[in-house]
């Protein structure tokens, strides 16, 4: 009986999945940041998302959401996200008609192609959309995004 119990215990140890302890470090913060950007893309486009990420793509690739695809280049994309670590690579997508979004305040302020910004300010994560830039691109936002629109 003891041998059977030990075997069951050993098998459960070797096959167990996701328990109460996190032994391998996971970048849950990076995953959540990607999820937020993906959610914004889905809410704005309201159709399948073809996102082109200028910067680290790893966290977007593991999202595993229906109707969400990572584009290989700007031309294929209907949503472009430029991360602040990769602002220098931005010229790649300058003529794209896709919706541009970033987490770089500097880029958002100087480039009017960008309709929205995801950033930290005053100890909390914020999203900002420019009403003029949205209007110029005839881009519509869901009602729940009204709180993020600013008049400039």
């Amino acid at each position: 009986m003891k041998i059977i119990t030990l075997c069951i215990l050993l098998v459960s140890l070797l096959t167990a999945q996701d328990g109460p302890f996190t032994l391998r470090k996971k970048d849950t913060i990076g995953e959540l940041e990607a999820k937020i950007v993906a959610q914004i893309a889905a809410d704005i486009l309201n159709k399948d998302v073809n996102i082109y990420v200028v910067g680290e793509q790893k966290d977007f690739m593991t999202l595993g959401m229906n109707g969400f695809r990572i584009a290989k280049n700007c031309k294929e994309a209907n949503f472009i996200f430029v991360s602040k670590q990769s602002v220098d690579d931005m010229e790649l997508c300058e003529n794209s008609r896709a919706i541009h979004f970033t987490n770089s305040r500097e880029l958002f302020n100087k480039n009017r192609d960008f309709v929205g910004l995801f950033y930290w300010f005053k100890s909390r994560p914020n999203i900002t959309f420019s009403s003029k830039r949205l209007e110029s691109k005839l881009t519509m936002l869901p009602k729940s995004y009204e709180q993020f629109i600013e008049e400039f």
Partner: peptide
Amino acid sequence: RFFIIFLYHSVVLSAISFGDDITELLGQY
């Protein structure tokens, strides 16, 4: 602002959603 929101709601589209509210996601984050 009204124009943008009105445009959105007046167009009936097949909704695509990941099932999370953006405010909820920001809170989780």
